[in-house]
């Protein structure tokens, strides 16, 4: 089979895998305990990474934009630029990529290891649906956790931007907050935040696919971890383009 044939075959398999995740997510029994465990793994343990990254990005972005905006006499727009940038694009995209790196590789490696060590076979031998038990909770955890982590990143970026701006211009928190949300529309806040649920689904399903379907033993563990991160990150960026076009279609006022 040619290279392109293998690509299309992989796309079909990932699609079928994702469709199965969607169907099983709404079919009882619901693995609440597993979901909780995965939420703790995906969400709680990623907060520090997300908040610190967001804070640093916010500070750096203000440092970069400030010089240009001050040159054009638009220093008052620094908070608005910071808020719109983070809430619309930087927050969702960077949070998705960070989670793909931290969680995607973990999911792929764990499931591949379980497959290699025949733990998945053991689970199925106990008449437990391994797919619902192992894959669905991980995907759902990513879907639920990523929008919340995105909010952490947005506000951390705003805080970093404020501290950076306050050190430069002694701006008050109230004024910074007022200016930051002055030009923010509903479509700049809700739609970009909710689109990260799609990113979470991509991270969870792609990572689980590479880990759950590997059959190369110990070597497959490494491949699954690597492929999970690379493919998930790539798909997140591509999906972002499509999702932004969808948002523009649903909220045409934001597309100038």
């Amino acid at each position: 089979m040619s290279w392109s044939g293998r690509v299309f075959e992989s796309v079909g398999k990932v699609g079928a895998f994702s469709a199965r995740v969607l169907m099983d997510a709404f079919r009882p029994p619901f693995e609440i305990a597993q979901l909780s465990r995965q939420l703790a793994e995906v969400g709680n343990k990623s907060i520090a990474l997300i908040v610190v990254s967001g804070f640093a990005l916010g500070a750096v972005m203000t440092l970069h934009t400030r010089n240009t905006l001050v040159t054009f006499g638009a220093a008052a727009m620094i908070p608005a630029v910071q808020a719109v940038s983070f809430f619309v694009e930087i927050g969702p995209l960077v949070a998705g990529l960070l989670l793909a790196g931290r969680v995607g590789s973990g999911i792929g490696a764990v499931l591949a290891n379980m497959r290699a060590s025949e733990q998945i076979d053991a689970i199925e031998s106990l008449s437990i649906d391994s797919f619902k038990f192992l894959v669905v909770p991980r995907v759902l955890a990513c879907v639920i956790a990523l929008p919340l982590l995105t909010l952490f990143m947005d506000f951390a970026g705003l805080l970093g931007g404020f501290l950076s701006e306050a050190l430069a211009s002694r701006i008050s928190p109230e004024l910074y907050l007022n200016r930051a949300f002055e030009n923010l529309q509903w479509s700049n806040f809700i739609a970009p935040t909710l689109k990260t649920a799609v990113f979470g689904f991509i991270i969870g399903s792609v990572s689980s696919y590479f880990g759950f379907t590997t059959n190369k033993g110990a070597k497959g563990v490494g491949e699954a971890a690597t492929n999970s991160v690379v493919i998930a990150s790539l798909l997140i960026i591509v999906a972002d383009v499509l999702l932004i076009k969808c948002i523009f279609f649903l909220f045409p006022d934001t597309a100038i």
Binding site: L39, G43, N44, I47, L148, L149, L151, F152, F155, T193
Partner: peptide, 12 residues
């Protein structure tokens, strides 16, 4: 984690 995230959403 969930309450904090939802609080940020409400704040926004």
């Amino acid at each position: 984690f969930i309450v904090a995230g939802l609080s940020l959403f409400v704040l926004g």
